[in-house]
Design a protein around this nucleic acid. Structure first.
Lengths: 155, 155
DNA sequence: TTCCGATTTAAGAATCATTCTGAATCAGGC
DNA sequence: GCCTGATTCAGAATGATTCTTAAATCGGAA
């Protein structure tokens, strides 16, 4: 049973409730906090990032619970694991069409929209591959922060 | 010192030699075998995949050597680590523009070209992000093999 | 309100992809 | 051929992630 102060003023509660209900999962305060932290994150956090953030409002939560809950959410399609080469798993609550800028230095990931691309449809070059469900652009380079750091260490 | 039978008939030797020379790396038989197996691979293999393939011609090679060498090659820009959510690191010797179809089931990755996309340039939506160097499309879905397996297990 | 399967926690252990360490060997410049 | 720093190998270590156990608590249907 989730206490009222966790749900009032929480724009993500409705979606969380629908997701769990549809999947036959119980609504627990831990699940809500984890879902919420991921939903408000702009930075595609790792499990440990989420753990540290959730712990501020829920100091007794276990790291194992975070990992286990993220895996459960992923398996029901509520969140996505981000396709990026990083030592740690990264997660994303945004499931709609969007794209990523990935920094080669710090592995930070920034979302962006690109309508010019979205209207292209699927390439005919891949028509024999299997069942395509979604397409995303990944831009790679070095983010402004890392560029600034590199300039600073050379200046 | 690389024996002649490793270099004759090897179309990838020239590129391998250039890469190592330019980076000030010694040419070793192990490095050549690892480079070559990755260069001929169509499937974006993991370190362990490469290890098993190299071991057929070089039974004494160590798994650590494969990992270390792949990391070295990556750090000099000779190969790329593939951005995909997989428990193991995946690698790619193809550095030119190309795109990936990723299977949600088996994590297999298939290359394809898409000229319609390549000519788009970079999106103006990301112009403030930092220094962009390259762009790739990732298509996600279920590959033909997995679709066939799923149909078989239901039929 | 009761009941029962689901979930969490704590604590510790296990797994496994990957990296480290130290001794031996090697590539290549001179 | 000599020499020296680079590289490899064998074995050990690391750390993100998952498992185990057992007890306690909880969500939610009836």
């Amino acid at each position: 049973m989730i206490p009222a102060e966790q749900t009032s003023d929480n724009p993500n509660f409705e979606r969380f409730q629908t997701i769990c209900r549809d999947a036959g999962l119980k609504l627990t305060p831990q699940r809500l906090e984890i879902y919420n932290e991921l939903a408000v994150a702009r930075d595609h956090p790792s499990a440990e990032d989420i753990f540290h953030r959730v712990r501020r409002r829920m100091p007794t939560i276990a790291l194992d619970t975070v990992y286990r809950t993220l895996t459960t959410f992923e398996s029901i399609g509520a969140i996505a694991r981000v396709d990026v080469a990083d030592d740690r798993a990264r997660f994303d609550a945004e499931l709609g069409p969007h794209h990523h800028c990935v920094c080669a230095r710090c592995r930070s990931i920034k979302d962006f929209q690109w309508e010019t691309f979205d209207i292209l449809g699927m390439p005919k070059e891949t028509s024999a591959w299997g069942r395509l469900m979604d397409k995303q652009v990944v831009l790679r380079g070095v983010c402004r922060d890392c560029l600034r750091k590199e300039a600073d260490s050379e200046g």
